[in-house]
């Protein structure tokens, strides 16, 4: 029992975070939201090994468990990563056949992945428009319910992880704003009304991350717990952040909206709150599973 990342895993997570924070700046996000051409960063992601985190070593991947992917997804969430990276590396790759995978990895290694994805998306369905200006959605046919439940486990964990990354980013943006914005001759961040709101969000984030990690390793009810906790945390973070930003938070000019809208979108993805709550109703209220101390791990 040692509920920590190994040093190697932590190095990989830190490298991903450094890359996302360094490359996916808000300037880049704004440019992408405005439809401007930006440099294709997928070759770099491929070189860093980020695309093959969960792929088997036999096809050139890093063969890391879902929990490592979850930590990378949190970093992606923090940066507001506007690419379908998590969906590819964390959901498609682990569910792909060996044949599909070797094709994928070759594409990734040849840095051709982005056009490959775009081409795949173009022929798979009709475009629909999200409030999140950085999400390119298409309407596609789903598989059967069992497939969806299985894929949802990965998707729920990784979307939960992105949600707490987004939440932390919104807290940090709010802290910066509250230190800078003066009223009554003081930074508004010196007022307890502001401090207490943000401390509450911080606490919720800190007590959501570990259950996401547990969910990634153990699956089961922890997944539903993790996703619901992450949804509630993200909504609290977004509502608190806009309140701290005041009128500025209600504009398209302040970057907060980019992160807030992503949070809204991911709350409904990979099993919304109702889906996961109903699963918990079955498990906790209608089932006869042993509950209480000693059964968490």
């Amino acid at each position: 029992m040692d509920f920590r990342f190994t040093e190697d895993q932590q190095d990989l997570i830190d490298a991903a975070k450094t890359f996302f924070d360094g490359e996916y700046t808000v300037e880049r996000l704004r440019a992408m939201a405005a439809g401007e051409e930006v440099e294709n960063l997928w070759p770099q992601m491929g070189q860093l090994g980020l695309l093959g985190i969960m792929a088997p070593e036999s096809v050139g991947g890093l063969e890391q468990p879902l929990v490592v992917m979850a930590a990378v997804a949190e970093a992606a969430g923090y940066a507001g990563l506007p690419e379908p990276y998590i969906e590819i590396a964390g959901i498609s790759v682990p569910h792909a056949t060996a044949e599909q995978l070797s094709g994928f990895i070759q594409h990734a290694m040849r840095s051709e992945l982005r056009p490959y994805i775009d081409a795949a998306l173009a022929k798979s369905g009709d475009a629909v428009k999200s409030i999140d200006p950085l999400r390119n959605l298409i309407k596609a046919q789903g598989g059967n319910d069992e497939d969806i439940d299985n894929i949802n486990l990965h998707g729920a964990v990784l979307s939960a992880a992105q949600l707490i990354g987004l939440s932390q980013c919104m807290v940090d943006m709010s802290v910066d704003y509250a230190k800078d914005r003066h009223q009554f001759g003081k930074p508004i961040g010196s007022f307890q009304a502001i401090k207490h709101h943000l401390a509450t969000v911080y606490t919720q984030i800190e007590f959501t991350r570990p259950i996401i990690h547990l969910a990634a390793i153990k699956g089961g009810a922890a997944v539903h717990n993790a996703k619901v906790a992450a949804i509630d945390t993200a909504i609290l973070a977004a509502e608190t952040a806009i309140q701290v930003h005041g009128g500025m938070g209600y504009t398209y000019e302040v970057d907060l909206h980019l992160f807030m809208k992503r949070a809204w979108a991911l709350c409904g993805e990979w099993g919304d709150r109702n889906y996961h709550m109903k699963k918990l109703e079955d498990y906790i209220l209608n089932g006869d599973a042993e509950l209480g101390p000693g059964v968490t791990f």
């Binding site: 029992m1 040692d2 509920f3 920590r4 800190e206 007590f207 959501t208 991350r209 570990p210 259950i211 990690h213 547990l214 009810a221 922890a222 717990n225 619901v228 906790a229 709550m277 918990l280 109703e281 906790i284 209220l285 509950l291 101390p293 968490t296 791990f297």
Partner: peptide
């Protein structure tokens, strides 16, 4: 029912967080 589930969820979140904290303290 949802409040009951929420109460259970919180205790599990607290447990997961405590094991992570203990792992760090032990290290």
């Amino acid at each position: 029912g949802e409040q009951v589930i929420q109460a259970w969820m919180n205790t599990e979140r607290f447990c997961a967080a405590t094991y992570q904290l203990v792992a760090r303290v032990e290290a």
